[in-house]
Design a protein around this nucleic acid. Structure first.
Length: 277
DNA sequence: ATGCGGACCTGTTAGC
DNA sequence: TGCTAACAGGTCCGCA
């Protein structure tokens, strides 16, 4: 589920309903996520007001009192606002119950669901930027710090395939497997090309492709926003026009050559032998 | 520092 | 139809 556009869509969907709301109760049904959910989470959250909601890479941050709730959706997680009569699912691990508010004066629950449990729900005291998980993350792909010059500088002497490089969160955050495949196709760069042997001119194309592909996906994710509360919450990014991901052995949309699928660092990698060099 | 493989989980699908 | 293996949108960690 969660690539960066999904996380951003989640944030945009929940943030307006959370800001200024008071947490009345916290229920942890399954603390065994990627890391244990802190045993004192309820004590930290209950009776506190939620402040600013933000995102760093694929990590979501909710300001609560003097600290922050830090969450990650892993491979299969989602975070939704549900009405208080919403039936409980098998993988609904954490509920954060909010006070009644708003025009409808309805009680809402922020529900963290994650079948594979690769996600995380953590508590951070003080400044989240200093937290171990966030401290050495690379720039935001849609931000001003993510430039061709930055990519070029960081890439020198590096031997890894370019696909692994752009998926490294210490280089740039938020480029997951789907969009790494898509951005490389749009750039005409072979996913296995050695990172240190790519010119600045090609990094200009790649940088732009990453920004474009993520930006377009976020726009599409926005179509599900209005139904986010109380709706089915199903993200709509699978509607996205994917040109290579999941299309191994199918024809290239540009040249009709058969797309090749290989594994790079254990991840499914699809590319066009003719268009990508 | 860099690169690599393993680890964490469950659900779905492909193959026999 | 039923069993088993492979694979899935992430990314941290330990080791060489």
């Amino acid at each position: 589920m969660p690539e960066l556009p999904e996380v951003e869509t989640t944030l945009r969907g929940i943030a307006p309903h959370l800001n200024g709301r008071r947490i009345v109760n916290t229920i942890v049904r399954q603390p065994a996520l990627r890391w244990p959910v802190p045993a004192d989470l309820a004590k930290r959250l209950n009776d506190q007001l939620i402040g600013a909601c933000s995102r760093r890479g694929k990590y979501l941050l909710l300001e609560v009192g003097a600290g922050h709730l830090l969450m990650h959706l892993g491979m299969s997680g989602n975070l939704r606002l549900v009405p208080d009569n919403e039936p409980l699912g098998k993988h609904d691990h954490v509920d954060i119950i909010l006070d009644k508010a708003g025009a409808a004066n309805k009680r809402l629950t922020l529900r963290f669901t994650d079948p594979r449990r690769f996600g995380a729900v953590l508590w951070v005291n003080g400044e989240p930027g200093e937290h171990k998980l966030l401290k050495s993350l690379g720039p935001e792909p849609l931000g001003e710090l993510f430039t061709p010059e930055y990519l070029y500088r960081r890439s020198r002497q590096r031997k890894v395939p370019i696909k692994s490089f752009v998926m490294d969160s210490h280089v740039v955050v938020g480029v997951g497997n789907i969009y790494a495949n898509e951005a490389l196709f749009r750039s005409g760069i072979h996913p296995l090309r050695e990172t240190g042997r790519i010119s600045l001119a090609r990094y200009q194309v790649l940088c732009e492709a990453i920004k474009t592909v993520l930006g377009e996906a976020i726009e599409q994710g926005g179509t599900t926003l209005r139904d986010f509360v109380g709706g089915d919450g199903k993200p709509g990014y699978f509607k996205q026009q994917l040109t290579v991901y999941g299309r191994g052995s199918e024809p290239c949309v540009r040249c009709a050559s058969t797309l090749r699928e290989v594994r790079v660092a254990q991840r499914s990698t699809v590319y066009c032998v003719r268009c990508q060099r």
